[in-house]
Computed example of a mutant assay.
Amino acid sequence: MIKSPTFDHPIVISAADIDEMGHVNNTVYLQWVQDAVVQYWEHVSPPDVRSRLLWVALQHQVIYRRPLFLGDRVAALVTATGTRGSRASFTTMFKRGDDIAAEVRSSWCCVDASTRRPRRIADDIARVFLPPASLRQGAERNAV
């Protein structure tokens, strides 16, 4: 099985991220996912494609494993896991060293920048962030 490339997005924890319990507030992870997935897209896609397409978050499933604290060094590791129609799915792992602090599975909708309407993710766009094996699996799912 070919694994999707993973994008490493460093996180800097600020004092504003910390809640009254002394660790990163749960809501901060959602902003981090937004930032990491958008940075991933901007990193891998050509400028002309970025100008035509936008992404809207549809759903996030967050599994918290360990708290993060001010001063921790954290990486958000983003992996695209599939496409179907106008939707793309991603997994974002928040890691402190070898420890997984949280895992987020998210679904995003590809939107035409001009019309602001959902747009089917063409194979040439999907190839930007998915390996060929994933594209074939997505095509099989779409054929059903």
Rank of each mutant, 00 (worst) to 15 (best):
Q31K: 13
V56N: 12
D19T: 08
D17M: 03
F129E: 02
Q31W: 00
W41Q: 04
V49N: 03
Q59C: 03
E20G: 07
R117L: 13
P131E: 09
P118A: 07
T92I: 14
N26I: 08
Y29M: 05
R84W: 07
Y40A: 14
A102P: 03
G85D: 04
S134V: 05
D17A: 06
V24P: 00
A113C: 09
K3C: 05
D123P: 11
T27A: 15
A139M: 01
C109I: 06
S45K: 05
K95L: 08
V44T: 04
M21E: 08
T79A: 15
V24E: 04
V37F: 00
V111R: 06
I100C: 12
V24C: 04
K95S: 09
Q31V: 11
F129G: 04
A143V: 01
I18T: 07
A15Q: 15
N142I: 08
E103Q: 15
D98S: 11
Y64K: 06
A126I: 00
S86H: 05
L30A: 15
Y40V: 00
I18S: 05
Y29T: 04
D17Q: 06
D124C: 03
Y29R: 04
Q61F: 01
H43P: 00
A15G: 09
R96I: 02
D112L: 09
G97I: 08
A101I: 02
V33Y: 07
A75T: 11
M1K: 12
A113V: 05
R105H: 11
